[in-house]
Amino acid sequence: MEPIRSDFGLKDQFRKTAMSMSDNIAEGFEYNNNPDFIRFLTYAKSSSGEFRNKIINLEEAKKISSNDFKFLYEKCIEFSSKTKHLIDYLRNFEKKKKTLKKVFRTLSV
C-alpha cells in the first residue's frame, strides 16, 4: 500500500478533517456568547470523532505507521476530552447565570 504522503486526495481530506476541529473553535469563539460557543465546541468535538475514525482507517490500510497512529489517536482523545470538559464548564456557567438572573428578577419585584 502507498503511504498517505503520496495519496494527495486522501491527504487533503485528512488535513481538512483535522483543521475542522480548530476552525470550529475559532468560529464559535467569535460569536462572543457562550451558547454559540458551546454549539461550535460540539462541532469541534464531532470533528475529533471523524478525525479519529480516519486515523483508524488509515492505520488499518497501512497508510500511516503504528507510532503515528498511536500519537494521533492519543492527541485526538485528549482534544475530545478537554473539549468536553470546556463544554460542561460553559453549560454549568450558563445554568448558574440563568439562576442568578431569576433571583435578581425576584428581588427587584
Rank of each mutant, 00 (worst) to 15 (best):
D23V: 12
P35D: 07
H85F: 09
K63C: 12
A26P: 07
K95E: 12
K96Y: 08
I77G: 02
S46T: 05
Y43N: 10
R39L: 15
K96C: 08
M21A: 08
E78Y: 08
S22L: 14
S47T: 05
A61T: 01
I4R: 13
T83K: 04
R15F: 14
F29Q: 09
L86W: 04
Y73H: 10
K82S: 13
K82I: 11
E27M: 03
Y43M: 11
S20Q: 08
N34H: 03
R105E: 15
K84M: 07
K75E: 15
A61V: 00
S47D: 06
I38Y: 05
I4G: 14
I25C: 14
T83N: 12
D7T: 01
L72N: 02
I25L: 15
A26Q: 13
K84S: 14
S20R: 04
N57A: 06
P3S: 12
D68Q: 09
D68A: 10
E94P: 01
L58N: 06
N67R: 13
K102Q: 14
H85I: 06
F37M: 05
G9M: 13
I4M: 14
N57H: 08
S66R: 13
F71V: 10
E74V: 05
F40P: 01
E59I: 03
L10V: 07
L107I: 09
K95D: 09
K82C: 11
K70E: 15
K70N: 15
A44N: 02
F40W: 01
L100S: 10
Q13C: 07
P3H: 10
M21D: 00
N32H: 14
S20Y: 05
K98Y: 02
A61S: 08
S6A: 11
K101W: 01
T106I: 11
A61R: 02
L107F: 12
E2K: 11
D23S: 15
K16C: 11
D12P: 00
L107M: 12
H85W: 04
F29E: 08
A44Y: 05
T17M: 13
S81V: 11
